[in-house]
Design a protein around this nucleic acid. Structure first.
Lengths: 215, 215
DNA sequence: GTCTATACCCGGATAGAC
DNA sequence: GTCTATCCGGGTATAGAC
């Protein structure tokens, strides 16, 4: 008996999804950069060559993970923004969902933001990304009635705010601390509203009159 | 003549700094995660075993790079904030310096934010970090006369804003585009001022009255 | 202080058997 | 569809010569 289970060969029948799921786990534990096909294969219990029957190479598996990531993310966002009408509240809700998603599905989040994965070589990813982009831009535009420059500036500032809060959460070692995640999500949401409130500053040169401390 | 230059053995005499410099270059080209001692050695033209005469392992070389990174960063920050008195302008200047530094010295920036590098094992890093932390917190406190909760919330939101703008710059492929860097730095500075202006929102629950679009 | 040589591990990828 | 076997390249780290 060379192998314990079943004493011999084992055909998954659905190795493809097992690979995607396994990839998510490996990335969760070792990070995107240290992810390897070999490790996934080992964990699932198949030969290191088995994945090549389903994916041309490492990147193609990652692209499949990326598509799933966008789907999961958008599902969360959709659920959060449905609770609000006001575009500012919707944008705050998106930021909240963004930070929560980053924390709860960190591996998926990493894949989502992976630059190395060339989207032009994997059009499926761009397609999976679109629903979120549309929802986000709709809210930004609604807030900027027709002022296109402002909308562009705001979109970037808002994105940076959510991304920054997610990264900060990563840089602190929060472990499994659910509370820390919710705190960060709430802080991100409030920062979004603060930014929206002061948004007219986004279009004018940075400096305030210097040399005094009043506002 | 087994080797071309000098026909034989070559003693750097200052391999230590050559290694640090080489590490910076390798990280610049391949990223922090793909950085390896072997590649640095090859590039400098020494044996792969040579670094071990100066650093116990890979992490110890990285720690030395981290110390240099904080020094370079703080020098830039110091120069930028000297131009302003108003704490808001100083904080905007810090954000500007932060984004510029991230873009111009990306490898150093990556090392600065590396979580894997345990600071408790490398106290030199914490020490090199302190001057920046002091300058930053002094400006935040000056802006929040005595309101400590507000100061804490603001510090996090400001940090997230600068970090987010730097990461966004990385995620777009800006190449060597000097203009894109300056744009991002200016956007970050303006976002800081917008955030400061709307800062009282940072302390209260996120939602605005929903269902209408006015402010 | 730096070299050569070596041992060892890990990853990507392919050929050919079953 | 999955296996075994194999090749190749890259990394860390050490021992011992010079």
């Amino acid at each position: 008996m060379p192998k314990q289970d079943r004493g011999g060969r084992y055909h998954h029948g659905n190795l493809r999804s097992a690979l995607i799921q396994g990839a998510v786990e490996v990335i969760a534990e070792r990070g995107l950069r240290e992810f390897s096909l070999a490790e996934v294969s080992r964990r699932i219990g198949v030969a290191v060559s088995a994945p090549y029957a389903h994916f041309a190479d490492r990147d193609e598996l990652l692209a499949a993970v990326a598509v799933r990531s966008w789907e999961v993310f958008y599902a969360e966002v959709e659920c959060e923004i449905a609770q609000f009408q006001h575009p500012a509240n919707r944008l705050a809700a998106i930021a909240r969902a963004y930070v929560r998603f980053a924390a709860r599905y960190r591996p998926l989040f990493e894949v989502l933001n992976d630059v190395a994965l060339d989207k032009h070589l994997h059009p499926e990813i761009e397609k999976a990304e679109r629903p979120f982009l549309d929802a986000f831009q709709a809210s930004v535009r609604a807030l900027c009635n027709g002022e296109n420059d402002l909308a562009d500036n705001m979109a970037i500032a808002l994105e940076a705010t959510a991304l920054g809060h997610a990264m900060l959460l990563f840089y602190s070692d929060f472990g499994q601390d659910q509370e820390a995640v919710e705190d960060a999500a709430e802080r991100a949401a409030r920062a979004i509203l603060a930014l929206i409130q002061g948004r007219h500053r986004l279009g004018s040169p940075a400096e305030l009159p210097d040399g005094h401390y009043g506002d």
